[in-house]
């Protein structure tokens, strides 16, 4: 290991959680969150995303914004794996309340560098209790 790598290894990595609770397009929150997430990826921190309440709609498959004249940014969630953001926690109760299931969500995969680039799903469906535990396990929580 070179000196440079050692220096990087000893830098403090903090756990960041981005909490997404709003549907896309009606307000700017979802897009702003995604942009901040992409920018923050440059800092090599331990980033997770939480999707609960109407935020689960950000990951719904089949979004088509042509007729509302806005950019469809849903394909960008599928790029997060390239940025080593591979933990997208989605709350099951929020899906249930909205009549949604995991099958209604986009397929979001990442390639696991440590496992011969095997494709693995980034979306992890968690219960409300598990989501609360994810939130309590962070250094920094950013809400959108």
């Amino acid at each position: 290991m070179s000196m440079d790598e050692q220096t990087i290894d000893t830098e403090v990595v903090k756990k960041f959680l981005y909490v997404n609770r709003k549907a896309p397009y009606g307000t700017i929150y979802a897009l702003e969150s995604l942009e901040v997430v992409l920018i923050s990826a440059a800092f090599d921190q331990d980033v997770s995303l939480a999707f609960l309440d109407d935020g689960v709609y950000q990951l719904v498959d089949g979004q088509d914004t042509k007729a509302i004249g806005m950019k469809n940014f849903s394909p960008t969630y599928r790029a997060l794996g390239d940025y080593e953001i591979t933990k997208l926690f989605v709350e099951k109760e929020s899906l249930d309340e909205r009549g949604l299931t995991e099958d209604d969500l986009m397929e979001i995969m990442y390639e696991d560098e440590d496992d011969d680039w095997a494709e693995k799903p980034s979306i992890r469906i968690v219960s409300r209790t598990e989501m609360a535990a994810v939130m309590a396990d962070q250094d920094v929580v950013l809400s959108f």
Binding site: L38, K71, F73, P75, A79, D82, Y83
Partner: peptide, 9 residues
């Protein structure tokens, strides 16, 4: 495919 330009890395 992704609606963004990739970061350099």
């Amino acid at each position: 495919e992704y609606q963004i330009a990739p970061a350099i890395r």
